[in-house]
């Protein structure tokens, strides 16, 4: 008796006449759950939705997309840490002035953390559909934000000195 032949994974089924798109029953049942269960169902539903789009890209691309997200997340945490450091170690005569440096740094970090997820999702969808990746506005916002905060810090330092 010979071994059965290799099973080849067909991958996600593309919607077609033979395979119409599956109605999303998972989303509806999630509505009836409450509390953490509903939140978890929401998390997993997104995962399934993405998996049903297009075809699996080369894993190297998926991994690279994930590393890019993680790098943006670390950048966001670094900005938050910089804001905390500014709040503690800046020594202006006018005590409230350090908030003008610290709070924008932290807000920039939080915004980039949110944006990096949506950019990851956009890129993952584009790769699964074999479409070109979209340009991200995040590097521009990061650069602009750091320049503005640095200039603001320099001006504040001079003004604080002159008012002394």
């Amino acid at each position: 008796m010979s071994d059965p032949p290799f099973e080849v994974d067909p991958g996600p089924v593309q919607p077609s006449a033979a395979h119409p798109p599956v109605p999303d029953s998972g989303g509806k049942s999630a509505e009836h759950r409450r509390g953490p269960a509903r939140w978890l169902a929401w998390l997993t539903r997104i995962e399934r939705d993405l998996a049903q789009i297009g075809t699996e890209p080369d894993p190297r691309n998926t991994f690279a997309n994930e590393r890019t997200f993680l790098a943006w997340n670390r950048t966001a945490l670094a900005l938050i840490a910089a804001g905390l450091a500014a709040a503690q170690f800046l020594n202006f005569n006018l005590h409230g002035l350090r908030l003008i440096i610290a709070v924008p740094l932290i807000v920039l970090g939080g915004a980039l953390a949110l944006a990096s997820y949506s950019h990851w999702q956009d890129s993952e969808r584009a790769m699964r559909l074999r479409r070109p990746l979209r340009y991200s506005w995040m590097p521009l916002v990061l650069t602009g934000g750091i320049v503005v905060i640095a200039l603001g810090g320099a001006i504040l330092a001079v003004v604080d000195r002159l008012l002394q």
Partner: peptide, 8 residues
């Protein structure tokens, strides 16, 4: 196991 991505 495909897919490799982990949105959760």
């Amino acid at each position: 196991t495909f897919p490799y991505h982990q949105p959760g």
